[in-house]
């Protein structure tokens, strides 16, 4: 604790207080409003919900809490299906991100040291260019008379264009494509620190490369696998742009449903209860992510 350059108490208070206040106001507090509105009834007004606490007459206050939205979410197969569908799509695409990202991260971590930084930069660069535009690029590739179908027909592999756009497959492709950098970076960070002498020792004792990988490399890189996996899984559950642009009417995801309830149906209470449910569902993977990040910090 010695030698802190900003030790006077007033400075300390400001440094901690200002970001705390900002995030408390604009990040934490809003969730309370989500909870509040989710318990209210929709009305045709501006804003389109009924306040929970209303002054009926002078001094007389009426409080009405409406759990109907949550009941609807549970009973209506549309909403339940969207929630479980989102979790399923998210889990499968996380798995594919890890399957594709692991060899890439491994190759970069084992590349000559002066190659690593440029190779990593190449992974990060697409992340800096517009997400919306990168998803949009796939429309031109996957659609009926798009680049992929044209190529496959030209090469004689197929004679009828494949229907890929507006199917779940297109959503998976879009998600894996957009979120791949998020798994490569944490995986690289754990793989590059791997103690190579362990592998040498195993090899000297006659361990085969595959077994080395399964018994040493993979277990030691597990924190990176979990961190990378969660960085994909959590935001993808609520993804809107990808299912909206690449998915079809049968790819129901909760983020897209929330968007429709809010913008098309103007049902703010129902959209809020969807958000509240999504938030609660995502707390478990978030805690897992925090847990592994803290372990990383301690190392």
């Amino acid at each position: 604790m010695k030698g802190l350059p900003l030790s006077p108490l007033r400075g300390r208070g400001l440094i901690i207080g200002v970001p705390w206040f900002w995030l408390g106001l604009f990040f934490l507090l809003p969730f309370l409003f989500v909870l509040k509105i989710s318990l209210s009834e929709p009305v045709l007004a501006q804003p389109p919900y009924m306040d929970l606490i209303r002054e009926v007459e002078d001094g007389l206050v009426s409080i009405s809490v409406n759990f109907g939205n949550y009941l609807l979410l549970w009973e209506d197969p549309l909403y339940r299906g969207a929630l479980f569908g989102s979790l399923k799509i998210s889990a499968i695409s996380t798995l594919f991100c890890l399957l594709f990202g692991y060899p890439m991260a491994y190759a970069i971590a084992r590349a000559p040291s002066h190659w690593r930084l440029p190779l990593l930069m190449l992974i990060i660069l697409p992340f800096w260019t517009s997400f919306l535009i990168r998803v949009y690029a796939w429309i031109g590739i996957l659609k009926g008379n798009g680049l992929l179908n044209n190529f496959l027909i030209w090469s004689g592999l197929i004679d009828q264009p494949l229907e890929i756009l507006h199917t779940p497959l297109a959503v998976y492709i879009g998600i894996v494509y957009s979120y791949l950098p998020f798994v490569v970076l944490p995986l690289y960070a754990t793989l590059v620190r791997l103690d190579l002498t362990l592998l040498e020792a195993a090899a000297d004792l006659g361990c085969r490369p595959w077994k080395q990988f399964l018994t040493i490399t993979l277990p030691l890189s597990l924190p990176g696998v979990i961190a990378g996996g969660m960085l994909v899984f959590i935001p993808v559950v609520g993804e809107f742009v990808i299912p909206d642009l690449l998915g079809g009417p049968d790819t129901l995801m909760i983020g897209k449903l929330m968007w429709t309830e809010f913008f098309s149906n103007k049902d703010w209470p129902l959209a809020s209860s969807l958000a509240a449910v999504l938030l609660v569902v995502l707390i478990i993977p978030f805690v897992a992510l925090r847990h592994f990040e803290q372990r990383e910090e301690a190392v």
Partner: peptide, 19 residues
């Protein structure tokens, strides 16, 4: 509070801030 916005679905951030 500084880690959560990195992974929080944007629809939640958007809706909660609007409210």
């Amino acid at each position: 509070m500084v880690t959560a916005p990195l992974v929080m679905p944007e629809v939640i951030i958007g809706l909660s801030l609007l409210l």
